[in-house]
Design a protein around this nucleic acid. Structure first.
Lengths: 211, 211
DNA sequence: TAGATTGTTAATCGATTAACAATC
DNA sequence: TAGATTGTTAATCGATTAACAATC
């Protein structure tokens, strides 16, 4: 079966749909039309229908979409109908912040261990999650199936660590280091480049100054 | 003068060019052709030339681009030739991590104050940056020109705080709360939705499982 | 000069929007 | 049934890639 390729633009929009539908669900909204959702989200109704129909027909003519059903279906598409075993490499400020962020648990992403080289941190706990030595990483990966590794180490160390993780079977890398990681294509890398994000903001701020 | 609109796709790529050129600069590479850069960055040479020519001709036929010059020019385009006064709203884990992240300073983004409602945090310092009470925010904004406010408060509080910031003249919002902010269009919002990022990762991981 | 590589125009490709028949 | 709204095809728009003349 030739699976039709879903464009990256569509995938990028899915979490936002999921978020809006989750909000509607909390407000006990039962149904919503693509038109109404489009007004809230400031996109075209056409785009919403087109996007959703990449994955199947979730609506009903004359009625619209059932919020609970659509929310749940998008959740499944996003892979949120299972749990993920996550580890964090780097127990610095950002690593600790991620470990402390309880909202990931709610969506099924469970941080099970944090790794660092700093002897002062090794052995301590963050929200009940143990900080282990980097020396233990390989053994840990051999005895535990890790789905996602968040990398929050300095730029220079990230590529080497990422290669190790890939070699040891980690298929998902959530990369916070300000560098690109070149890994085998069976490994999925999702980048969060905070400094890039800040630069986009400064671009738009200076653009306005020039007007 | 009718300024030609630069597409969002181009702007999103600029920080990445800047990053690669910075790396080349550190390695003392003097010149680079669009072809060579395209191989490193895994994009087409055509795209690089097309992107750069939105802003002017920075290269030379038969030679390529001078790395230092191009790096500096892209820096200017991104607005990195000036300093930014930044504050952080929310001294939780993420807010503290951002405050501790010294790399922003290097690019000209200076965190001058952090605001929170937690009495246990107010008055303390993070990397020499004072945590102030939210009650002081308005006065602070009146007496200081703040360029960028990073919002790291819970989802429910973010929209109200963002409106306050906009009303008090803040033109740049770096939003980490998992919600969209609807603000007047003279205010620039850059979102960092970590949970969305994680969902994109889980989408691609489950997509692979299905193959 | 000859070779290399840009800047830029033209061609292609893909994504978004519009339109409307199908149908609840 | 009549009205509403989807699912889907067609039209438009924009972004990417290819090609090449200009020129260093």
């Amino acid at each position: 079966m030739q699976k039709k390729e879903i464009s990256k633009a569509v995938i990028n929009r899915l979490p936002r749909y999921y978020r809006y539908l989750g909000d509607l669900l909390e407000k006990d909204v039962v149904r919503i039309s693509s038109k109404e959702l489009s007004e809230r989200m400031k996109v075209t109704a056409s785009q919403i229908r087109q996007d959703l129909n990449n994955f199947g027909g979730f609506g009903q003519q004359g009625y619209g979409y059932n919020v609970e059903y659509l929310h749940s279906e998008i959740g499944k598409i996003l892979g949120l109908d299972r749990k993920y075993h996550m580890i964090i490499i780097g127990a610095g400020n950002l690593g600790q912040a991620l470990a402390n962020y309880a909202d990931f648990d709610k969506k099924g992403f469970f941080v099970k261990a944090i790794f660092d080289i700093n002897p002062n941190l090794i052995g301590s706990q963050i929200r009940g999650i143990e900080v282990k030595s980097m020396d233990e990483l390989e053994d840990y990966l051999i005895s535990n199936k890790v789905d996602i590794a968040a990398i929050t180490v300095p730029k220079t160390k990230a590529p080497g660590i990422a290669s190790d993780l890939a070699r040891l079977g980690v298929k998902g890398i959530w990369n916070f280091a300000p560098t690109d990681l070149n890994l085998p294509k069976d490994v999925t890398v999702e980048n969060v480049h905070l400094i890039d994000s800040l630069m986009k903001l400064s671009y738009r701020l200076s653009e306005k100054d020039e007007e």
